[in-house]
């Protein structure tokens, strides 16, 4: 039943794409046990020596229109990290939650222009720095808390936005210079259960 639902949702997300604005992001994330994780991912997290002894890692399986992946999430030095691997345990990217003010000024100016153009109203709710690179480069970046040489750095931004009569959360991915790479409407869970 879970697979049928997943296929239906991914299918819906796929066929409902048309323009950049109409792209939809569906994501399901659930906790998994450490013993179900690909060995490479486990070795990377626990033997790369960027984790402090007290840091607790939580493992999740993520299902989205892009496929299935494994994520290790942890909080260290007041920063939230999310490290994504494919199903074989190959490193995909590292995401690090940051404050809006940590985006370089020129990049942020360009991002603001794009947000102004694409939305009638918008408000930034969450910003993540995304690093893509080899395992060694990424480990170096985590240790230094900035992108090491050879690492591709992007910014993933979640906003509350209004386009015409549509009011939703959106996720946008910008490159280091502020060029828009992807824009998706986030398929939100219903709030009826909490409100009524």
């Amino acid at each position: 039943m879970r697979n049928v639902l997943k296929i239906a949702l991914i299918g819906f997300a796929f066929f409902s794409t048309g323009t950049c604005l109409s792209q939809v992001k569906y994501e399901r994330e659930y906790r998994i046990k450490k013993d179900t994780i690909a060995e490479n991912a486990c070795v990377f997290i626990h033997q790369s020596e960027f984790l402090e002894e007290k840091t607790r890692v939580k493992w999740y399986r993520e299902e989205s229109e892009d496929g299935t992946s494994t994520e290790a999430k942890f909080k260290q030095n007041v920063k939230r990290y999310s490290i994504e691997f494919d199903e074989t345990g190959k490193l995909q990217d590292v995401e690090l939650e940051i404050d809006e003010s940590e985006i370089p000024v020129e990049t942020m100016k360009k991002i603001s222009v794009i947000l102004e153009r694409n939305f009638d109203r918008w408000k930034i709710k969450k910003v993540q720095r995304q690093w893509i690179g080899s395992e060694i480069e990424v480990i170096e970046s985590i240790n230094k808390e900035y992108a090491a040489d050879g690492v591709e750095e992007n910014f993933e931004i979640v906003i509350k936005g209004k386009v015409g009569n549509e009011k939703n959360y959106y996720e946008l991915l910008f490159d280091q210079t502020g060029e828009l790479m992807r824009q998706q409407r986030i398929v939100e869970q219903s709030s009826d259960i909490l409100i009524f």
């Binding site: 039943m1 879970r2 639902l5 399901r28 994330e29 659930y30 906790r31 999740y60 869970q189």
Partner: peptide
């Protein structure tokens, strides 16, 4: 079981 309430949870 996860970061948000998903179906079958």
């Amino acid at each position: 079981f996860g970061t948000q309430v998903d179906p079958n949870e």
